[in-house]
Design a protein around this nucleic acid. Sequence first.
RNA 1: GCUCGGGUGGUGGAACUGGUAGACACGCAGGACUUAAAAUCCUGUGGCCUUAACAGCUGUGCGGGUUCGAUUCCCGCCCCGAGUACCA
Length: 1018
Amino acid sequence: MQQVRVNMTEYQFSEIEKKWQQRWAAQKTYKTTIDKDKPKYYVLDMFPYPSGAGLHVGHPLGYIASDIVARYKKLKGFNVLHPMGYDAFGLPAEQYAIQTGQHPSITTKNNIERYRQQLDKIGLGYDWDREIKTCDPEYYHWTQWIFIQLFNSWYNNETNKAESIQTLIAHFKTKGFHESHHSILTGNIEHSIASFTAEEWESFPQEKQQDILLNFRLAYINEAFVNWCPALGTVLANDEVKDGVSERGGYPVERKLMKQWSLRITVYAERLLNDLDTIEWSDSIKEAQRNWIGKSVGSGVTFKVDNLPLQIDVFTTRPDTIFGVTFITLAPEHELIEQLTTAEYKTLVDEYVHYAKNRSERERQTEVRKITGQFTGAYAIHPFSRKKVPIWIGDYVLVGYGTGAVMGVPAHDNRDFAFAKHFGLEIIQVVHAAEAIANNQKNLEQSYDAKEGTLINSDFLNGLEVKAAIRKAIEAIEQKGIGEGKINYRLRDAVFGRQRYWGEPIPVYYKEGLPCVLPENELPLLLPEVNKYLPTEDGEPPLARAHNWKYKGQYDYEHTTMPGWAGSSWYFLRYMDPQNKNRFAGKDEVAYWQQVDLYLGGSEHATGHLLYVRFWTKFLYDLGLIPVNEPAKKLVNQGMIQGISEKVFSFFKLDYSIGALDEDSSTGCSTLSLYSSQIVEVDDYIEKLGGQEKEIKLTIPEPYDSFIKKDINRTFLSAELVKSTDNFQKINLDIKLIENNKVNFKKYFESENSSNQVNNLFLCEGGIWFKGKFHRLGEGSNEFKTSPEVEKMSKSKWNVVNPDEIINQYGADTLRLYEMFLGPLEQSKPWSTQGIEGTFRFLKKLWRLFYNQNGEWLVTDETPAPAELKVLHKTIKKVQEDIENLSFNTSVSAFMVCVNELSDLKCSNRSVLSDLVILLSPFAPHICEELWEQLGNKESITNANFPVHNPDYLAESSFSYPVSINGKVRVNIEMDLSLESKEVEALVLADATVQKWLEGKQPKKVIHVKGRIVNVVV
RNA sequence: GCUCGGGUGGUGGAACUGGUAGACACGCAGGACUUAAAAUCCUGUGGCCUUAACAGCUGUGCGGGUUCGAUUCCCGCCCCGAGUACCA
């Protein structure tokens, strides 16, 4: 053979992989263009944020899986789109810029380069001509453009889609706006606008008209409570806040009333919810989205305030329990508090409101169910019973949900119950539970919240079942004109502005205080240069620092930037046509590629990115710009690959908790005194060291100075010395310094990152390690044991395994196979490199089918034997099914079985091996390309056809039946598959072993499942 | 608390719609080749009883049920992981 040949005696992965990676790049093997003769298939990985830490072995898991699918689909004759790019705006690069002054674009560029190198080394077949970066003006041009479309649109509830704001203006011009026009309005905004007639609309000044329209635009600015994070100096969306702290960095977050850009995602709540049924996404993601949207069906009810011209609207999902209402609770921020509070209670109420408002979100979270509240002195009139019920304020009621007020039904709502108990309010039972639970207790221990039972003490609802009662109650409420059936969503509008530098500028300027969007032909609005990446002295966002940055030299631009999720909310469309200068993506391209067929990524995006991208997709669909209303048909979450950390147990300073070092003047030795402290383990340790002596003399070969003067940084105890971990801090050591759960001190004291570690002291059973030396103090071992723990893989935990290292040692193909072999794609699992030898051996064994140990080519052109074909076709079937089910771990097993069996058969048949190489090429593309070429093929294996499974080769004429007696397998009997049950029965009963088990008894029954099993019942 | 996953050898994991539990791989043990090592190959490997084989008993978190037959289906419970948290 003519091509450059490396040493063929062995599988030389590094040469092979280098050769093919270069060739793929040079020949643009993975370039995709529209091909209308072929069915399309779009596989997408979730957009990575290129962090400075680079990839660890967990990241490629999904990339490898999607790469396998992409390659497989191509072999199956699909035109495959499989692109990659970067979500490049974001906080880490900006934080780094603040610290170092380096422009975030430089950091981002470097990180992207590093990512790219790592991705290439894994042999991922992306069409890199389609690479996109969200921070690229060519890209954010269209992010800004979509924002403008959002600004220029409103949601028409009659047509149930977004429309140009012009249709709303037309509506105002002809019909004006009345509160009764609810049907065309959305959310809660009908409360904030006074009605007007068509004539009035025409007479309004421009500004007023614009002001009104702002209440309808899908991108709007308003004053609202937002999550403010002082440490990051920005607001955050709900999904960016976890447990009351920021998701990135973990800084406290507080509620703050601010003027903000928001996107009206809430108008899509119902569609976002319903369309979940049309897509194949994992149940967990769908469930998370359903919960996040949080639809609840109920009714609004109005309570009049006694002696005041005020009324309180509440929302309830249990209108049936209306007669159980014994109080009303308002959120501390409720607007009516001031007006309805009586003079007598004013001071108390003011104090309480002040207290409640100033509690941080964090406190509210941590002080779970600490009940606080305050009576206002005012009473509401029960709309049916006319009874007076007290009006309270309680911080268990949230401003943001419903109307910010609830009707207290303590008997049937656990929160109301707790509140009533705490403040001694009346409790009236109105639902009688089913017989079993119904004790009809006077002193209820807890509320009965279930929606089952019969109504009591409820006037016209008495005797009805809960469900019927709900219907009847709503009827009555509507009849009385004090409310109506209503649906509420937990989903809030998405705060869109960020007080940060490194993001897309919002294409808005202000003219006479009113926001105006830029003309589309003036996009992109470039991110200006600033002298510092910090807010200005008077608290304006960093963009306010930009010199002379004004629209037409006179109008201020918007100074906030878009959030990280803006760019990722539509990127799947840009990949279809990444270089288009005139449109976010060309019409033909969008029509051809439609939507993502398979979307792979982590489940952490469940309520953020995945909700926003669905929102934007629906919006663009409504405007007729794209043909699909869901971004991805199928979505799979790959499990997280966790790291195994090596923990050591630490006291802070030696003399701080357990001992001190002194110089003994008489001997010139340093003395380590270990004295008893409150920590039991130390006593144990001292005892282990040989007795009750609590002072141990250490001969230190080094000068006294170096030992003592430099503080001992930390003292660690070997894991077996630690009985209870309570008194210790656990510290992560770099896993590279640990072997078999023991610290390798040679590496440890030589390691470069040990600057903060050199002065650490390690207590082992038999003595102390300090500064590279072991000081024996007793009998025991000098080994220092660590304690392994599974946690997230991250730089800060020192447990990162880098794919580059694995690739250097075993090659990318082995890494790819191993990552797949590890277990089901969707399952999380800790990374352990133990076991990678197995997949490496497999590839070497595969190589041995082609070359013997002397490097001689073994492949022959004989007609394949039936046994060989059987092995091959069994594998084709299995692998094909497995890839379709994304069950890659079992397909790797199938390959191993196949190669084992072909080796046993000494198969070196060209046609069998050719098919095998094609089958395996999605998993291990480099070695397969090489072998494919060795087999004499000129074209890349990626252009081959996936072998067709022929079931004839698998046909069996007989089967070794497991025969069980009473369900327990006792013997296997080989029988012809064509035999009927009667014949089988006869054969089985004639068998000696069966006879033995029958012990002469007659079988009651013989069950025969063809090709499966025979069971004899005695 | 609620929702969704998940509990199978020393380890990662496999088992189609109920039909031979532990495929495949790691690890371990023994052996072959080698002066030796690496690499490679072969054999064994859930537990228990038995000198060993044959055979047997037991075994998929725990308890019960349905079934000729249950890792798989049903009921109750325990544990682990993820998400979510006063949403009226």
